[in-house]
């Protein structure tokens, strides 16, 4: 095992800000939705709008970072090892089998992560951003008398936004749990805090992916 610098400062900052914002948007959003009571309706709306604008700023910087560093390639979905990774969570993990995908600095996401994160980045977040902006500004055509752009009502916008919110909350729960499925229970969490993680070296790699598809006998 070798100690590697996996998550750079901005990446960690971006991750934790995003985590806090999504949590906060979730709480305030579901208060606006009428599911929970926490801040009080008017505060929930105010906080939700503020957090949404903050999130937009963060997204702009994150997009810039992804493209200038080339890190966006990490999220390109792949079929390779997808099945093996799924089988690992269903079987291997209980047999103390090794992770089927080797985590390296150049490839730090397993195929399932790639798929889910790509889905979030390319689909859920954009849908949330667009429906959220429409939700916030759908009255502007009326205000500025651009009647051709008048939005009849909130229903479709709100329902789409709600669907996305449920997906994000479910993702959040699953994500919190999957943190514990790293090399050790806390290694993923530590890595995202410090940036450093113990990663398998070249020599460890040999008994990795291919074998994982076979049942592994416990020692």
């Amino acid at each position: 095992m070798k100690r590697e610098y996996v998550y750079r400062a901005f990446e960690r900052f971006w991750h934790w800000m995003q985590a806090m914002l999504i949590l906060f948007l979730g709480i305030t959003g579901f208060e606006i939705h009428g599911s929970i009571r926490f801040f009080g309706y008017d505060q929930a709306v105010r906080y939700h709008n503020t957090a949404a604008i903050s999130f937009l700023v963060l997204i702009v910087f994150a997009i810039f970072w992804h493209f200038t560093t080339g890190e966006w390639r990490q999220y390109l979905p792949t079929w390779k090892n997808l099945r093996a990774q799924a089988e690992y969570y269903v079987f291997g993990i209980f047999r103390n089998a090794p992770h089927p995908t080797k985590k390296t600095v150049l490839s730090k996401l397993n195929p399932l992560q790639k798929l889910v994160y790509a889905g979030l980045k390319a689909l859920v977040i954009p849908v949330m951003v667009i429906s959220g902006l429409l939700y916030m500004f759908y009255r502007y055509p009326h205000r500025y008398e651009v009647l051709g752009l008048n939005v009849g009502g909130l229903e479709v916008i709100a329902v789409v936004h709600t669907i996305g919110a449920f997906l994000l909350v479910s993702f959040f729960v699953a994500h919190l749990y999957l943190i514990t499925t790293g090399h050790t229970v806390t290694s993923n969490l530590k890595a995202m805090i410090t940036g450093y993680e113990e990663l398998p070296e070249e020599s460890d790699e040999k008994k990795s992916s291919v074998e994982a598809n076979e049942p592994v006998l416990t020692k």
Partner: peptide
């Protein structure tokens, strides 16, 4: 009309 906090899609 749809009013946030009052209305929601039951299915969703």
């Amino acid at each position: 009309f749809y009013m946030p906090g009052r209305d929601y899609s039951t299915i969703v």
